[in-house]
Design a protein around this nucleic acid. Structure first.
Lengths: 142, 142
DNA sequence: CGGATTTCAGTGTGACTGAGATAA
DNA sequence: CTTATCTCAGTCTCACTGAAATCC
């Protein structure tokens, strides 16, 4: 249980150090990284995906919007929901940042061969799924 | 990379909720859990093990000391270092808290059979080791 | 003196809860 | 009316940096 905590704190410090050259915090990096793969998600959807509250996610989005790395427009036919996506500048920045992150990840996983890496990834994805299942307001569709 | 972050945030919320019945924060729980297995470690040693600064660890220890869950005495022949250990009350409390944590962990790993669990554990331990290697002041001996 | 440790003090980020406005 | 969203405001815990004192 707290092995995950230690790994997270360690990665956090390392990755934060590596991301500051891009002016990105870890939460900003994470958000942009999700948005790159799933453009068009709303704030509420992003929050559920990341297992944080919509209010917390909102802070992150606002900061990135102010820097013109993210834009939002009204989601097609869906209440007040705002659909978020990366701007061209945002895309360029996340590409560079992800390359730095990949270097770090590769270093941390140096002891593991490819099949084991995939297995680790799968195991973690499984745990995330379980965490979301058990969440107070689970919304599997997002 | 950020899979770990998501898992950690999810576990954090869940575990914090489950630990508050014991009046323990997650960092307090983690410290006591380490101390149970490795009694006699100093503040600086505990900090290195947990990948946080000695100042941060200090805050946690002070709180637990005030509640008589942890005591410290001068380490045998080693400068100013104070050797920390659990009090009987501390031992009783961590036993109960760990049982609650085990239930949660079991639930999260429900999809994985025992060999895969062991493999996941080993992979994470490997990453922690790598993180400590790369740390600014690595002290492998602790 | 130098290195490791403990301790005190101040800071700040990132998440949280609570409350209000708007839209289907 | 209910539900989901977005938004604003305030709070708080945790770890951080900086600095000082102590001990081989």
């Amino acid at each position: 249980v707290y092995l995950v905590g230690r790994v997270d704190r360690g990665i956090r410090r390392r990755l934060e150090g590596s991301l500051e050259q891009f002016g990105l915090s870890l939460s900003e990096f994470t958000l942009m990284s999700i948005l790159k793969r799933r453009p068009g998600l709303s704030n509420a959807q992003l929050a559920r995906r990341s297992l944080i509250t919509p209010q917390s996610m909102f802070d992150v989005i606002v900061r990135l919007e102010a820097r013109d790395l993210v834009v939002r427009d009204l989601a097609p036919a869906h209440g007040r929901a705002l659909s978020a996506r990366l701007t061209p500048a945002g895309k360029r920045l996340i590409e560079k940042a992800e390359r730095a992150a990949a270097v770090l990840e590769d270093d941390l996983l140096a002891d593991l061969a490819e099949p084991e890496r995939a297995q680790l990834r799968q195991a973690l994805i499984g745990v995330v799924a379980r965490l979301r299942d058990r969440a107070p307001e689970s919304n599997v569709l997002d």
